[in-house]
Amino acid sequence: MRTLKLLSAIADIIVPHTCPLCAVVGYSVGFCSACSVEFTPPASPHCDRCQTPFTGTIHSKNLCSLCIKEAKKISRSFSTARSACVYDGNIRKAITRFKYHNQTEFSLPLALLTQSLVSSLANASADVIIMPVPLHKRRLKKRGFNQSLMLARRLSKSLSLSLDYKTLMRVRDTTPQVELTPKERVENVKNAFGVTNAAAIKDKKIIIIDDVYTTGATLSESAKELMSAGASDVIAVTVARTALV
């Protein structure tokens, strides 16, 4: 531990902390204050389950119409979905550069942004498992990294929660969701996931991590798989959520 501390002190000397968005050199880990003030927090009031903002003055303890219709068409298998901020401006830039330009230096600041959210949702419970939304083997081979896994790994380390990236698998190589309409998305991810080892998640509370929440289809589908395999609760946490839908 001592050596690790010494090494990290040396690393701090050689590589200063730098804001990955604006390249300003500073002391703090993560985004610089000038860049972070531009992050928009999710609007309130919002749906208690999926955090979709309400237009009127409805209290946040209520559910949105989609979540109420859960049993019917669109399934909302997660119990709660929360995002750290709205997917716009700087955060959009950051996630784009992280995902599509392989700038993995964004993983730490983005994880930090989500950390308090995950920590409060985990609620100090020991049986919580952090899980990334998996990529299909082929996609992983192509990209070389799974951005959700990178975030999940950082979160599990900093919050000392166990990480499981093996149980939930993407069994079908689906079209990237960004290219599809909300309706197509639900169809697209249908039965895309599978659980390899149900015993590992039996009666466990699971927090699934992803970068962006758009319609919730991907997260919902993976949650469904986990719930039917025996998980006690599935919470979805993303860095950002789109203002769409």
């Binding site: 690393a11 050689i14 590589v15 200063p16």
Partner: peptide
């Protein structure tokens, strides 16, 4: 080496450093 170190510990490359 400095660049590899910065990527390795998940930081931004800083050319002056």
């Amino acid at each position: 080496m400095a660049f590899v170190l910065s990527i390795g510990i998940g930081r931004v490359r800083d050319i002056y450093s």
